[in-house]
Amino acid sequence: MYNPQAENIIIVKDLVKKFGSFYANDHLSFEVKKGEIFGFLGANGAGKTTAIKILCGLSYPTSGKLNVGGFDIYKEREKIKRNIGYMSQKFSLYDDLTVFENIRFYAGIYGLRRKEIEERAASLMQKLDMKEARDKLIRSIPLGWKQKLAFSVAIIHNPKIVFLDEPTGGVDPVTRRQFWDMIFEASSEGITVFVTTHYMDEAEYCDRVSIMVDGRIAALDTPDNLKKHYGAGSMNEVFLKLARVKVE
């Protein structure tokens, strides 16, 4: 839920990331409020993944001031990593480990105790309706299950923020919606959700949406306000209006 009075959980000021002479992120500035679902949209190659990697402490910016979850991006990267969850487009579950082994592995990395891990795993299996898949290899379970599991694992340590980089690519419409039910639930429990997607109906589920074009933020507002501002009936139209300019 977006609350303008809430504290800023992510603060980005003048973020620049250059690769050679190419500006992947060209002076980005924005804030994300605690507990909101923040949609981070943009065309392929607009610079989204570059920015997410920096926010997660996986790569340094060229310049700019950034604070994530109350920690400085230059000096407190390890603290940031402990306080965030991350799910990438190619979910990072291990294909040749079982469902349970993956849970145990990630929970272990985040320092959960053996007993806690057993409990979390059991309640997760119950919640995801995956009890019979507990000892199956990840490679053998359907994509939709993997996605739900990858998300659950990404928030197993109760992070302040979870970053989702195109979490729903290629799944069927029912699974996509079940996935968003999980996002809503995490958000209602106070986890801030930072999500990228190419499905424009999903952009409508976000509290606020930013649209990146060529390394810059071309627009940032609630879906309703963006639609009003661009005289568009849907987020798809808004996106096409903003992102198509550069192609032509």
Partner: peptide
């Protein structure tokens, strides 16, 4: 086979 999975809305349209 799923040529537009993971592709943005503008590129999909084109």
């Amino acid at each position: 086979d799923e040529p537009t999975t993971g592709v943005d809305a503008v590129s999909r349209l084109e």
